[in-house]
Amino acid sequence: MAIPIAAEPIFNIGSFSITNTLLDTLLIDVLLFALIIFISRGVKYIPGTLQNIVEIAVETYYNLIESITPKRVKEIFPIAMTFFLFILLINWSGLLPGVGTIGIFETHGNEKTLVPLIRAASSDLNLTLALGIISVFATHVMSIKFTGIKDYLSRYFSLNPINLFVGLLEIVLEFAKIVSFSFRLFGNIFAGEVVIFTVAGMFAFFFPLPFMVLEIIVGAVQALVFSMLTMAFMVIFTTPHHQDKHTAGQKLAAAV
């Protein structure tokens, strides 16, 4: 019995198959929309417990991004915070009791496999790839918006043959970014899922607990890494190209 890399379809709506990872995404959507409805009912001047928690999270993250990029905090904060919140909840949802363990047994020939009804969505490459694409796409949109199309294109195209070659490499790098974003998150969470599944298979009680704690940390770290990398790329891409080189040189000099 092994965990398949691809998400298993649970039911179909027309030609669109609803997979167990998509159900997990919908579960997190419900949770986030509950929060959105609660907050949209009115932010109170004297906050309650939940509003306090939301305020602490928002303020801490806002200050963190402001400390790194005070100029672009208003534009970068919403997307970076949403990445963090969404990925964190998705990652941790895989550790909930019942997620990945309650399902239907299917028999393929002699082999009997369990198809879980809900599975951590970040162990599905569809989600991580989607997030990677959004991150890179949003970075490029911001770059065009803040530096202008001319400066944006000068990053990739130049009359100087060396710069032109570097530009081509940069284009390849952009696709590599999507792959690295998606596979990093997918790999970490999928590996964690496999580890817990294997350990629980050996002895179901107490034994998986340390690995679960580790997975809680991994889930938070991966959410932070995804969000911080997106923010870092956005900061680099919203700085004009010639200035970017200068500051990168300065940073390198400082690091040396």
């Binding site: 959507d29 986030l32 959105i36 949209s40 928002v58 919403p78 694409i133």
Partner: peptide
């Protein structure tokens, strides 16, 4: 893939409009 992109887009819009801004 498209469904996940749209889903994230909706969540991003809703969080920005109804949570981040007022908070």
């Amino acid at each position: 893939l498209v469904a996940q992109i749209v889903n994230f887009g909706i969540i991003l819009f809703a969080l920005q409009r109804f949570v981040y801004k007022p908070v």
